[in-house]
Amino acid sequence: MKLAIRECMIDDLVILREISYKTYNETFKAWNTPSNMEDYLEKAFNMSKMRDELLNASSKFYFLYVDEKLTGYLKLNEGLAQTDIKDSESIEVERIYVLKEFHGKALGSVLMNKAIEIAKEKKKKYLWLGVWENNDKAMKFYKRNGFYIIGKHSFFMGDDEQIDLIMRKDLEVN
């Protein structure tokens, strides 16, 4: 299995939108109404919003390829691009998704290791993220990767208020 990770550029906008929409839908459609999913997907992954995110110097997207096939992606935010904490000492892992057909191959760990590597290169003290309190699979993954709960916030899926747990991973910076 040949792995490759590369930073997304503006030319990747259409492909980024497609994989973002698909992976989010695969992950959460079973727990949400079709109308709430449609509402959220259109707001979060419309072309204009995603273009702005790609052009934001404080946000970076990375594609993960396995044997030259796009399998997942990672989104990291720094500074004011962070959705909650906005600490200059941290990086937010806003999105880490792998296509369902590639689950169980430790590809989430590949993306998480990339996030950790980038944070350490930038001399950040910690990573943080928000995870839906009912997403047991993701919670277990983050805990295995050294994250711990530090708080929570509301997250709206359409008109449904849900709770995201805020998790942090402290880094040893040399």
Rank of each mutant, 00 (worst) to 15 (best):
H153P: 05
L165E: 00
Q162V: 04
D164G: 04
I166T: 09
M157R: 01
M139Q: 14
K143L: 06
G146L: 04
K140R: 15
G151R: 13
K169C: 08
G151W: 09
N145P: 07
M167N: 01
K152A: 12
G146W: 05
G158K: 04
F141I: 01
I163Q: 08
I149P: 00
F147L: 06
F156R: 14
D164W: 02
G158Y: 01
F147P: 00
D170V: 13
E161N: 14
N145L: 04
Y142F: 14
M157E: 00
E161W: 04
G151Q: 12
L165S: 02
D160R: 09
G158A: 07
I163D: 03
I163C: 09
I163K: 11
K152T: 08
S154D: 14
G146I: 03
E161A: 13
S154R: 13
F155V: 06
K152W: 10
Y148C: 04
E161L: 10
G151H: 10
M157S: 03
I166N: 02
L165Q: 02
S154K: 15
K143G: 03
S154L: 11
F155M: 06
F156E: 11
M157G: 03
H153W: 07
R168G: 00
L165N: 01
I163E: 11
R144E: 12
K140N: 13
I150L: 08
M157F: 11
D160A: 11
G151N: 12
F156L: 14
R168K: 15
I149R: 10
Q162W: 03
F141Y: 02
F156K: 15
D160E: 14
M139D: 06
D164R: 07
F155I: 07
Q162T: 07
Y142H: 06
Q162S: 06
D160I: 03
K169S: 02
G151E: 09
Y148T: 10
Y148M: 05
Y142G: 00
R144V: 06
K140F: 09
Y148E: 11
G146F: 07
R168Y: 07
Y142T: 03
D160S: 12
M157Q: 02
Q162Y: 03
F141M: 02
D164N: 15
S154T: 12
I149Q: 10
K152F: 10
F155D: 01
N145R: 10
N145W: 08
I150A: 09
F147T: 00
K152D: 13
G158D: 02
N145D: 10
D170P: 06
D159M: 11
M139G: 02
F156M: 14
H153D: 05
S154G: 13
E161P: 10
F155T: 05
K152P: 00
G158E: 05
I163G: 02
K169A: 03
K152I: 04
D159F: 09
L165I: 09
L165W: 04
F156D: 12
M157D: 01
K140T: 12
M157L: 12
S154A: 14
S154Q: 14
D170W: 11
I163T: 15
D164E: 12
D164Y: 06
D159G: 11
Q162E: 09
H153N: 13
F156Y: 15
I166F: 05
D164C: 05
I150D: 05
R144Y: 10
D170R: 13
I149C: 08
I166R: 09
L165T: 00
K169M: 06
E161G: 05
K140H: 13
D170Y: 14
Y142E: 00
R144K: 15
R144H: 14
K169N: 08
K169G: 00
N145G: 05
E161S: 12
